[in-house]
C-alpha cells in the first residue's frame, strides 16, 4: 500500500473548562458570547489527533489537519500542528462562522475540502464537539463521502488496507475491522494529545498550510444551510432545599439514597 494519508478534522471552540459565568447569554441578539475564554481545539478532536499520531508512528504516513470556521486562531492551529501533524488545510470565511453553520453544512464544507485536498485513507474526527455536543458532523461527512464509518473509538490501528478499531461501549468495547478508506469518530479513551517539543513548535511554522474559501470548493455561501435560532434563554436555575429526616441516621440515609435514586442522581 502507498503511504497512508490520514486526515483529522478539528474544530476550534471556546475553552470548555472556562467557568459558566464567563458565557454571556444575550437573549435579544440570540447569541452566547464567551468573555475572556481562549479558543482551544475541541478536546475530542485532540483525542482524534493523538489517535492519528499513534497510527502514523505505527504504520507510517502523513497527517493533514482540516478545520472549517471564521477567524481561526493561528496559535491554536500551530500548537495542534506541532503535536505531530504534517499539513494544515482550513476553510475560512465569514459565512463559515461556527455559530451559524448547522451540522450538515459543516459536513458539506468538510466533504468538499476533502475532495479538493485528498484523497485520504483514514479520516478521524472527535466523537462530538465540545460546544454543541451534537456528534453529527463526523458521521455526516462519511455519508457525504460514501465511505464506511465507525463511531466512538477508543483505539485505532491500521494494518495494510484494513483498520482495526475498538469502539467504546457502556460495559466494555467491541472490535470492528473495516477496509480503508474509512472514517472513525474518536473518544477520549484514546488518550490525551501529547505536548509539543520546542523543536516541533519551531518546525510547525514551516509546515504546508492552505486556506480555501467555500467558493474555491465549488460552494457558494448562500448555498450553505444556516442555523436559525428562534429563541435563546439562560436556564432558570431554582434552588430548593429539602430536609430528609428519619428515625435514626441509618433511616435518614436510606431515605436520602432512595430520593437520589428516584431523581436518577445515583
Amino acid at each position: 500500500m502507498a503511504e497512508l494519508n490520514i486526515l483529522v478534522c478539528v474544530k476550534q471552540v471556546p475553552d470548555p473548562e472556562g467557568p459558566p459565568s464567563a458565557f454571556e447569554v444575550d437573549s435579544a441578539a440570540r447569541k452566547v458570547t464567551p468573555k475572556g475564554i481562549p479558543p482551544v481545539l475541541s478536546p475530542f478532536d485532540e483525542n482524534a489527533l493523538e489517535a492519528a499520531i499513534r497510527v502514523k508512528e505505527a504504520a507510517g504516513g502523513s497527517i493533514t489537519m482540516l478545520s472549517v470556521g471564521n477567524n481561526l486562531s493561528k496559535a491554536v492551529m500551530l500548537k495542534a500542528l506541532a503535536s505531530g501533524a504534517d499539513r494544515l488545510v482550513t476553510v475560512e470565511d465569514p459565512s463559515c462562522d461556527q455559530e451559524g453553520l448547522d451540522a450538515f453544512a459543516t459536513a458539506s464544507l468538510l466533504a468538499a475540502a476533502v475532495r479538493k485536498a485528498g484523497p485520504f485513507d483514514l479520516i478521524l474526527t472527535g466523537r462530538q464537539a465540545a460546544d454543541t455536543n451534537a456528534g453529527q458532523v463526523g458521521l455526516g461527512l462519511a455519508q457525504l463521502l460514501s465511505i464506511p464509518a465507525v463511531s466512538v473509538a477508543g483505539k485505532v490501528e491500521v494494518n495494510g488496507g484494513t483498520a482495526r478499531v475498538e469502539t467504546v461501549l457502556p460495559d466494555g468495547y467491541e472490535v470492528v475491522e473495516a477496509s480503508l478508506p474509512l472514517l472513525v469518530t474518536v473518544s477520549h479513551e484514546v488518550g490525551d494529545l501529547r505536548y509539543p517539543s520546542l523543536m516541533a513548535i519551531k518546525k510547525a511554522k514551516t509546515l504546508p498550510m492552505e486556506t480555501f474559501k467555500p467558493a474555491d470548493l465549488g460552494m457558494e455561501p448562500g448555498s450553505l444551510v444556516i442555523n436559525e435560532i428562534t429563541e435563546l434563554t439562560a436556564p432558570n436555575r431554582e434552588r430548593r432545599c429539602r430536609l430528609v429526616e428519619g428515625e435514626s441516621p441509618e433511616d435518614a440515609g436510606a431515605k436520602l439514597a432512595a430520593l437520589l435514586k428516584e431523581d436518577k442522581i445515583i
Binding site: A75, L78, K79, A82, P196, L198, I201, K205
Partner: peptide
C-alpha cells in the same frame, strides 16, 4: 515566538 508558544504550552 517559539519561546512564547513553548511557555503557553
Amino acid at each position: 515566538a517559539a519561546d512564547k508558544d513553548l511557555a503557553a504550552s
